[in-house]
Structure formats: structure tokens, C-alpha cells
Amino acid sequence: MSTPRYVLLSEATTISDYVDNPVFTDVTNDGETYTTYRIVRITHEIFEHPDDWTHLANVSLEFNIGIGVAHLLLKNKIVEASRIKPTPPSEIAT
């Protein structure tokens, strides 16, 4: 199995180059819980990931306070799938 490669994207990259809508909803708990996030910045392009993730992004909660890092599967500028690692509130400077 090949190791995934993460290629850092330029800070000049705009989100609209990758997705039509920066707001997407992550579904967890066997399809029960819906949480809406906003892509703040797409940081990496991913190649050869065994789970098919294509991009890594910084995200924030759309309707609450919270940030995280998202693995995204982007296809035709649509977020097809996501896996979020939320940043624990204790690690967010207040």
C-alpha cells in the first residue's frame, strides 16, 4: 500500500478554485448527526490516500464556535465526503 502524499498549497489559493460552496455538512453517528462546517482554507492536496481523501482543509463550525481539520473528498467542486478532527476547545486560545 502506498503512502499518501500531502502537497502544501499556496496561501494565495482561493477556496472557490476547489469548491462551489465552502459550506458543507459532515454526517456522523451512522448517518444520524449532521454538523455544518465552513471551509476556511484548503491547505493541502492529497495524493494516493487509501481512503480516497483528496484535500486537507481548515474548517470552522458554521452555526457554533469551533474549529478543526478536515479530510475532504472533492469531486467536480463538490464536497462528496468528509472526516473532521475537531480541535478541542481547551486548545483554542480565548
Partner: peptide
């Protein structure tokens, strides 16, 4: 798009003050 459907389902859950699908 699947993104659009999920966003709208999430929206309906939220405006109806529910917690899950």
C-alpha cells in the same frame, strides 16, 4: 449535489430544533 442535500437536511434538522435525521 450530495453536498447540497446534506446542507439542506442539516438546515431542516436545525430549524425544527431536532437533533438527528
Amino acid at each position: 449535489s450530495i453536498q447540497n442535500v446534506r446542507n439542506r437536511v442539516a438546515h431542516s434538522i436545525r430549524i425544527n430544533q431536532l437533533t438527528n435525521r
